[in-house]
Simulated assay, not measured.
Amino acid sequence: MSETQNLTVVQAVRDGLYTEMREDDDVLVMGQDVGKNGGVFRATEGLFDEFGGDRVVDTPLAESGIVGCAVGMAAMGLKPVPEIQFSGFMYPGFDQIVSHMARFRTRSRGRFNLPMTLRAPYGGGIRAPEHHSESKEAFYAHEAGLKVVIPSTPYDAKGLLAASIRDPDPVIFLEPKLIYRAFRDEVPEEPYTVPIGEAATRREGGDVAVFTYGAMTRPTLEAAETLAEEGIECEVVDLRTVSPLDREAIVEAFEATGRAVVVHEAPKTGGLAGEITAIIQEEALLYQEAPVKRVTGFDAPYPLYALEDYYLPSATRIEEGIREAVEF
């Protein structure tokens, strides 16, 4: 039987990096302060001492350079895992991400692939200043050639990160920092993967399907437990990957219930909830009993501390959305 560790999400990320670096000499970590300092959230703590400066590379504060160097390394056969300190700092590297990282295989007509995994903490809830709390995963899900992965548990964090690093094509790996140290889970010490593109059913129920991912999985489950006391049974589906979406899991859960709610902290307009709604309309319209309800962040700049809790979908707001869908 495999030995397990009781880890937080950020510890599982660190363990995933350590395991993959130990198993494959082509894997390397790079980014601002990832070396001796261990990263702003200590996700790379101890890796410099274990693997040295050639494989745990401190870079200048230059996101375009970090991503661009990783693209070149991956094209030449390495498996770089660049870290951007916060997802709100990815924008200076956006040209490298969409013009090169996402398109390299297509532009080279299959001559090159890019086995690289771009990591970044994302999302709100930690009382951070401006540019530290955005949820802009839809930017990257919109770009063909990129996979976009968002874990919600320590087990998935390690397994999905391993799958991302081993993938022959580029992956954006967004880590919900609100739950970095919120809880612990049993995580195997041995290497393992969680498949990219497969959702997970976190709770079974026959009244309404609730789709979510990342840090919003926990308040969604909390809302589902409260509503169960009222006789409303929610099927909670953690998407885990937002590109590619698990269309089969979405359709199956909706067909079983006829009602759906989508929860994410990103703004409503252009968010993944719209795409999930479209999948339901295209593939399961005849099962629909009520309009799809979206419980999301607002179409406004991410607020500072005083309004942060109001901006993020709370368990109470999720409960209200689910009731609307069920009572329609």
Rank of each mutant, 00 (worst) to 15 (best):
E222M: 13
I232F: 15
G35Q: 06
A306W: 11
G159R: 01
S108M: 07
D95S: 05
L146V: 04
L178Y: 07
L307M: 12
H100K: 00
I97M: 02
L307Q: 13
A209F: 01
A141R: 09
K36P: 00
K268R: 11
V29G: 01
V292W: 00
R166Y: 02
P168A: 03
F112Y: 14
A249T: 12
L286M: 11
D58S: 09
V208N: 10
D167M: 02
G270N: 02
I150T: 06
I280Q: 00
E265M: 00
G88E: 13
E20S: 15
I318C: 06
E308F: 06
I165M: 04
Y192I: 07
T226D: 15
L272N: 06
A62S: 13
M216A: 12
T19W: 01
G145R: 02
Y140K: 01
L61P: 04
P151E: 06
S164E: 09
G72H: 09
E233W: 14
G145L: 03
S164N: 05
T316I: 14
I279H: 03
D207N: 12
Q5Y: 02
L272D: 01
V194E: 13
R202N: 03
V236A: 06
N6L: 13
M216Q: 15
R127T: 10
V57Q: 03
D95G: 07
E319R: 12
Y192N: 05
